[in-house]
Design a protein around this nucleic acid. Structure first.
Lengths: 246, 246
DNA sequence: TTATCCGTTTGACATGGATCAACATCGGGT
DNA sequence: ACCCGATGTTGATCCATGTCAAACGGATAA
């Protein structure tokens, strides 16, 4: 068995060869390319890079759980991470699926509160963990940076509100169609899209059981709106699909 | 007829005696007392006060609608405001109920995007509208202030995530009980609480129809957990109520 | 007082989506 | 190649919540 059956804390599991201070200028230049840090001066970037740690997290690693204190935020160098809420009876609800280049955990960093969600890698991933004190330090003397942080938080808020909107006043079918259309956009508008994870996960992300998700997807296919080949979804007529969500 | 049948834009309606620049030091000292501005120097406060406008908004005034551009944010001097999403068929879903001393619209201010929600007063209210340029100006040279803005956005994010959580993995009963308990806390823990608006509105805020809300409330009463007298809810045994939400 | 209106309650019924269970399919490991 | 566990599909049934409709109650204006 190569993979851990139980998700394991990445920091614990990878205490040995996999976690290491990230000093290489590769890290600095990687950071410099991120929207959040783009405007920072070289020495600022370097200080942040010095406060960063690379993490190799095999599939199924838990980066943090609800209730853990927050020590910084994460950037996905490559791989995929899901953020999920967990119910006491082992159920879980995926809040967000994140891929290469995306970051998470910024918001919690600025509160004293512990994490509300659990983060787990869905595939073997490499992450960068940036310690919060480095961010705080830059914040205090670089108003431009503060502006970017504010903008980024605002975008996240905006996104969450639309999420709330789709949960509260759209049907399952509408959420699925909307999601497919957003994937089309994200993936360049081609006639075929690729689901970014197991249907299982997507279903939860859309607040549906996997059974219900499957049924809706197949009924869309039966209506001739999409075709299903594993995780690839063919979409012939985008307009028709869009208008299908009344 | 004293009240406008149709909600009317407060800025239009009140072009005359009701809207005026807010220069009085009363405004400045009011601002200085808000958590967001508490740490600001006197001259900073004064500049912000100079960019503020008081608005008298009778019940039913629409402060802005989804799609309107954002020119600043609002503080409720007294009164009550609801933020709601609107469906194309006239349905609406209350996102948030805000009362005296609370503010709203900060997040949108920092994006170029227009408002996603509609804001309407539920009772005769007095608001302060702070122009975004004043905030931007202070932001650029006061890192402490930036920190507070960031903290405030983060809190809002945190709040939205718990909202999302309760929508997606709690039953109607659980949401109601949770809400009642939050009111108990908010209102000092006494054995009687006061719903902050018509049941209609509360129901929507909790993502329920008013019929369903009514039924649940009365079934809680039938179970001896609460008593209902109009907008006053009696709660004899908080522990029992809390444990009732499995 | 009465008429009216709005908010609330109650009832009967419809339905989206969940649950439980069986079966099918896929992919990785031996 | 085969097996096995994980993932997906399908069917039957149930339940929470929504919908439609009617009665009720309390405010308010005439």
């Amino acid at each position: 068995m190569l993979r851990d059956a139980l998700p394991v804390n990445a920091y614990e599991a990878a205490k040995h060869p996999m976690t290491r201070p990230a000093k290489s200028f590769k890290v600095a230049s990687y950071l410099a390319a991120l929207p959040l840090f783009r405007a920072l001066a070289r020495d600022e970037i370097n200080r942040i890079a010095a406060a960063s740690v690379q993490i190799d997290a095999p599939r199924g690693s838990v980066l943090f759980r609800r209730g853990d204190p927050c020590t910084g935020f994460h950037i996905i160098i490559y791989g995929q991470v899901k953020l999920a809420l967990q119910t006491d009876q082992g159920g879980e609800k995926v809040i967000e699926l994140l891929g290469t280049g995306q970051s998470f955990g910024e918001a919690v960093m600025f509160l004293e509160k512990p994490y509300m969600v659990t983060a787990e890698t869905l595939v073997d991933s490499k992450l960068l963990h940036v310690a919060n004190k480095a961010i705080f330090a830059e914040l205090d003397h670089d108003p431009q940076f503060a502006r970017r942080v504010i903008a980024s938080l605002s975008m996240r808020l905006h996104h969450l509100v639309s999420e709330l909107e789709s949960y509260s006043l759209q049907s399952g079918t509408q959420r699925i169609v909307g999601y497919l259309l957003s994937l089309v956009e994200e993936q360049g508008g081609g006639p075929q899209i690729q689901l970014p994870a197991r249907k299982n996960i997507i279903a939860s992300r859309l607040n549906l059981t996997h059974e219900h998700f499957s049924r809706i997807l197949h009924s869309l296919a039966a209506a001739g709106l999409i075709s299903i080949k594993g995780q690839k979804i063919g979409i012939s007529d985008i307009k028709k699909l869009r208008s299908h969500a009344e």
